[in-house]
Design a protein around this nucleic acid. Structure first.
Lengths: 120, 120
DNA sequence: TCAACTATTCAAGAAGCCTTGAAATGACCA
DNA sequence: TGGTCATTTCAAGGCTTCTTGAATAGTTGA
């Protein structure tokens, strides 16, 4: 993961619809989901979906696979991890508190991270 | 960290100059660095710097503190950690491989993550 | 081949972001 | 008080991104 790739990935993630896409597709694993089904689930127009899927794919965060008439999209989980790792290592200089906040976010919840006023 | 905050933070990070700012300021810790010195170090014009500093501060990633004529900016490392945690937990559903890529990015290098062709 | 279906591409317009120079604000010192 | 320094605000312009409807391309089954 070089600088420009990380920047492209961050830019791709910095959009509500695309964050929704990642959230929707991640649990589906390698199988992914057909474009039409995604559009229906998220309630967005086909060209708009296509635009955002292309943005994520170009940033390397999504993969696509054709099957008959459908195109299945799935998340490249490694690319997302690499993007996180890039920010952690190259931008935050592996700062221990950043890493702790990142790593402990799961089990303990993020309350330990930003002093108690968390909403989800 | 709620959805809109995470989105604002990601948008703020998704810019080359602002990533440079985070990288420059993180090692300086709480003390931070004066705006003028930042501008000189990065070689960017004052209004442009002010614009990006404001963007990062509004996103909650930077803090500012006045001292005489200077304004010192420092990174809120917890906010960055929370942003990472948000993506991990709420967008990637705490996917084990994403977390592994994120967590192991340090010691082992990212080679384990994106198959060997790493450049920094 | 034709019709139906799935998905992408195109073009246009709206909206937002970024950069720049000029002007303004606020703090310090002689 | 007046001058200087540090920083922010303002306004303008250019550039990019996003959304939308219309058109296009590829696939399937009758």
């Amino acid at each position: 993961m070089d600088r420009s790739k990380a920047l492209a990935a961050l830019s791709a993630l910095a959009h509500e619809t695309r964050l929704d896409l990642i959230r929707l597709l991640t649990p589906r694993g390698e199988e992914g989901m057909a474009a039409g089904q995604i559009a229906e689930t998220l309630g967005i127009a086909a060209p708009r979906l296509s635009f955002h899927l292309a943005a994520l794919e170009q940033a390397g965060l999504l993969r696509s696979r054709k099957a008959a008439r459908n195109v299945f999209y799935s998340v490249d989980v490694r690319a997302i991890g690499s993007t996180m790792a890039y920010v952690l290592n190259h931008c935050c200089c592996d700062h221990p508190e950043v890493r702790a906040a990142c790593t402990h976010g799961v089990a303990g919840g993020q309350g330990a991270v930003s002093s108690g006023t968390e909403k989800t």
